[in-house]
Structures are given as C-alpha cells and as structure tokens.
C-alpha cells in the first residue's frame, strides 16, 4: 500500500486529514493529533522539556561532567556552592557535586526505566486477566493484589532488599514488586467496564477467544490510563529509590545515586546544607517534571474522551 500524497499537500495537512489513505497514515495522523493537543498544554511541555534535558545529560554525562564523580580530594572537601571550579560545591570527600549529579541522572533514569517496564506490565497482566475472567480467577488474583497493597510500600521494599541483598538491581526489583498492585487494580476496573461494552460483545460474536480479546481489544484501552498513572507514579518511584539509597539499601557508595548523596550529606546538613539540598532539588525537579507530563498525557490519552 502506497501513500498517495498529492505533491501540493503539506505535511501538516497530510497529518491532519480526516481520510487517511493507509494503515500507517492513520496511525501517524492519530499520533500527530495527540501530539498537537499535548503541545498546547504548556505545563506538560515544560515537564517534557526537563525530562528530555535529563535524558541528554545522562547520555552525554562523560562530556558534560567537569570532574570524575569518584575522584576524591580531601583537601578540597565541603567547598560551598560557587567555589572556584566547583559550581555546586564538593561533598565530604571533596568530590564535585555537579559531576556526581550528572552521573547520578544515569542511575535515576535506569531505575525509573526498569520499574516502568516491570510494574505496569505485571499489573496489566494480572488486572486484565482477573477482570476479564471473573469468578475464581478474579477472586484469587485480586486477593493476592490486596495482600501486596496492605503493606506500606517502603517497608515491603525494605523487606525484599533485606532478603535479596542491597544493590540497585535488587532495589528496582523490590520497588517493582511493591508498585504493581495499584496498576492491577486500575487495569481490572477498566477491564470490567470494557468487558461489558458492545464492541467486546461484537468481537465475541465473531468467535474471538479470550486471549485475542484481552491482548488486542482490552490492552490498548488500558495501556493509556496505565501510562498516565506510571508517569504520575514516577515521582514516587524516584523517591522510593532515593529512600532505599538513603537507608543504605539501594545504590551503594561510592555510587552517585541521588538518594545516597542525600544520605551522605545529611551529617553536615546544618553547616554545609548544599551537600544534601542539591540532590534533593534534583529529585524534586525530575519528580515535578514527570507529574506535569503525566497530567498532560492524561488529557491526551484518556480513552473516555480519546480523539474528541
């Protein structure tokens, strides 16, 4: 199938058409419409801007960072912000805080990406299967979900890390294990309303099986609300990772994980406030960015008024 674009048509007109000419065209057009409505949301674009900036920083960390984040210089320790050569000062071992922050963004993104891959997918699976199957399957799956939900998140994560051992991967695993139940609940609630809709009845009357209905018809509608929820939860995930780092159960020193940096800086918080505050501000900014983006995405992706 070829794209039958008339030469005098601009890209914009082609993307905004009401009569797409191929499968790809239809997808691109609907994607572009979504992008346009996201773009009109200033706060969401602000959030997206921060996140793209973070991504670039993480990508080019070795080129941007003025110092090696691990090299200590005890003679130069606890320099204040704006000190010569150290824009954000140095920490208790004389390491440049800016460089550590820049390298730390890699760890933060790594944690966020892994959790964002594991938790919603697990939740989606459990929730849609429970919601569509109903009966015993539903009861059993949802009671398991309830058990996970009943524990405070950090306490459960602590227990997992204690059992698995400290380290970033285990921290990610622990956070994911505590983060999936809310997604399962959302997915189940969505599935329950979708399941009784006419278009699901219609495809059932064509002889479609449960697997096809769940993966091809229910998932696409659940995913958008999950994406929104994930971006809104990102702040919490970063904070949980930082919390584990702070408690010494996440990233291990000398790793420049932001939570671990706060943990190190807390000993000097009264005399040398910037050591703990700067990574704190970084966590705050990124969390805020995710929240703003999530809010904007909700307006674009919410299936209840999707495409209107």
């Amino acid at each position: 199938m070829s794209d039958m674009t008339a030469p005098d048509l601009t890209w914009r007109a082609w993307l905004l058409t009401d009569a797409p000419t191929s499968r790809r065209h239809a997808q691109l057009a609907s994607f572009y419409q979504g992008w346009l409505s996201l773009r009109s949301n200033t706060m969401a674009m602000f959030g997206l801007g921060i996140l793209i900036f973070l991504l670039l920083v993480a990508l080019f960390a070795p080129f941007i960072a003025p110092y090696d984040p691990f090299v200590q210089s005890l003679g130069n320790r606890l320099q204040p912000m704006g000190a010569e050569g150290h824009l954000l000062g140095t920490d208790s071992l004389g390491r440049d805080i800016l460089s550590r922050l820049i390298y730390g963004s890699r760890i933060t993104l790594y944690i966020v990406a892994l959790v964002a891959l594991i938790a919603p997918v697990a939740g989606l699976l459990v929730g849609t299967v429970a919601g569509y199957a109903g009966g015993w399957t539903d009861t059993i799956l949802m009671r398991i979900t309830d058990i996970f939900l009943a524990f405070p998140r950090l306490v459960l994560a602590l227990a997992f890390v204690a059992a698995l051992g400290a380290g970033i991967e285990n921290a990610v695993l622990a956070i994911s294990l505590t983060a999936w139940p809310p997604y399962a609940r959302i997915a189940r609630a969505e599935t329950l309303t979708i399941r009784s809709s006419d278009y699901i009845s219609a495809i059932r009357l064509q002889g479609a099986g449960a697997l096809r209905i769940i993966t091809k018809h229910i998932w696409p509608l659940c995913i958008s609300s999950l994406i929104v929820r994930v971006t809104l939860d990102m702040a919490g995930i970063i904070l949980a990772a930082a919390g584990l780092g702070f408690l010494g159960l996440g990233a291990q020193p000398p790793s420049p994980e932001w939570g671990a940096m706060i943990s190190e800086g807390r000993r000097f918080i009264l005399d040398h406030w910037w050591v703990a505050t700067v990574p704190g501000l970084a966590i705050f900014t990124v969390s805020l960015a995710f929240n703003l983006l999530g809010d904007g995405l909700r307006d674009v992706l919410d299936p209840k008024d999707g495409g209107q």
């Binding site: 499968r23 809709s197 009845s201 219609a202």
Partner: peptide, 27 residues
C-alpha cells in the same frame, strides 16, 4: 448481530480497516 448504539459498538482505537480485517481473519 448489529447492535443498537453505533457509538458503543466500535472499538474506539481501531480503524474501520482493523475492525473488518480482524473479523474476516477470525472467520
């Protein structure tokens, strides 16, 4: 079967092409 409400009987994220192709495939 043809359902009452055409606003509720088509999957909101599927194009006409997807709806018909999938049905034909299932048959």
């Amino acid at each position: 079967m043809v359902f009452q409400d055409p606003y509720a009987s088509l999957h909101p994220r599927h194009t006409v092409d997807q709806v018909l192709s999938e049905t034909l495939h299932l048959h």
